[in-house]
Design a binder for these strands. Structure first.
Length: 267
DNA sequence: ATACCTGTTTCCCG
DNA sequence: CCGGGAAACAGGTA
């Protein structure tokens, strides 16, 4: 269930393994999550190291190990992290198992859209340090939103919000939640947006991102009750504000959900 | 059996 | 070279 806040929560699940040594490593011989990496590196280089630190940036995770080793992890669509007993035996979709003295850190991913990377060096890898400004950072300003809008005037807002170069960590449900709160139609183009809507879009991004972190990000589970989140998956879901039946349709390549009376497409 | 899916990458088009 | 959109990736679930 991987968007910004869910990724943060998933990452924290491995924190029980912090300051503990990796006794042994199991690597799936077939899972696609290793992509172009040499999967032998993961077992050869992580065995014997200690997990020192975990952090997230958008949907990306970085785990720091002793000896200047770094593990990058992306959950893709169906990836998840778990803690299992120390004698956990590899299951069908287990991509990476890190065995510790008292427990096993598990990364599983049935659809294998996730991704693992290894890095060795004194400093974090480029693919980590060169990420766009986090939406949780004070440096994430309305100028970033304005820049994205100005640069992609013909893209539906929904597709733009999902662009990780500007909004790292934004996923399908968060984008719908933001647009619903900003009263903007997902198929609206940025060319049609004035400064007032821009401001609204920016402030609702902050609201949703921080609200999601406070709920989902720290406790897991679902966002607050009145959020669109709880209505957007089912046919016949209703708008939490107005009560009308929500519309679901593919926009920007993804199923989108919006309230037809609150989010109008201006002519 | 069919359709659908909280994501990214690649390919193709204008 | 670009911006934008569709397809591909793969398997579980309803």
């Amino acid at each position: 269930m991987p968007e910004l806040a869910e990724v943060a929560y998933a990452c924290s699940l491995w924190n029980r393994g912090l300051s503990r040594q990796i006794k042994a490593v199991h690597v799936s011989p077939t899972s696609r999550v290793f992509r172009d990496e040499d999967r032998k590196r993961f077992s050869a280089e992580l065995a014997g190291k200690t997990l020192m630190k975990s952090e997230t940036h958008g949907k990306q995770m970085l785990f720091t190990f002793s000896g200047d080793y770094w593990l990058g992890l992306h959950l893709g669509m169906t990836g998840s992290l778990h803690i299992k007993e120390k004698s956990h035996s590899p299951q069908k979709h287990d991509a990476l198992l890190l065995f510790q003295a008292k427990q096993t850190l598990v990364f599983q991913d049935p659809r294998q859209f996730g991704r693992l990377r290894m890095h060795k060096g004194k400093h974090p890898p480029d693919w980590w340090t060169e990420q766009p400004v986090s939406m949780l950072s004070p440096k994430f300003t309305i100028e970033i939103v304005a820049h994205a809008l100005n640069r992609h005037t013909k893209r539906p807002l929904k597709a733009l919000l999902l662009d990780q170069r500007y909004f790292p960590g934004m996923g399908n449900w968060m984008a719908d939640e933001v647009l619903w709160r900003a009263n903007l139609h997902p198929n609206c183009r940025s060319a049609m947006i004035g400064p007032k809507e821009q401001k609204k879009l920016f402030s609702q991004i902050l609201f949703v991102v921080h609200g999601a972190m406070k709920s989902v990000g720290t406790k897991g589970g679902d966002p607050p009750k009145k959020w669109l989140f709880h209505q957007r998956w089912k046919d016949g879901g209703t708008c939490p504000k107005s009560g009308v039946t929500l519309i679901r349709e593919e926009i920007g390549g993804r199923t989108s959900c919006w309230s037809p009376d609150l989010q109008k497409l201006g002519e």
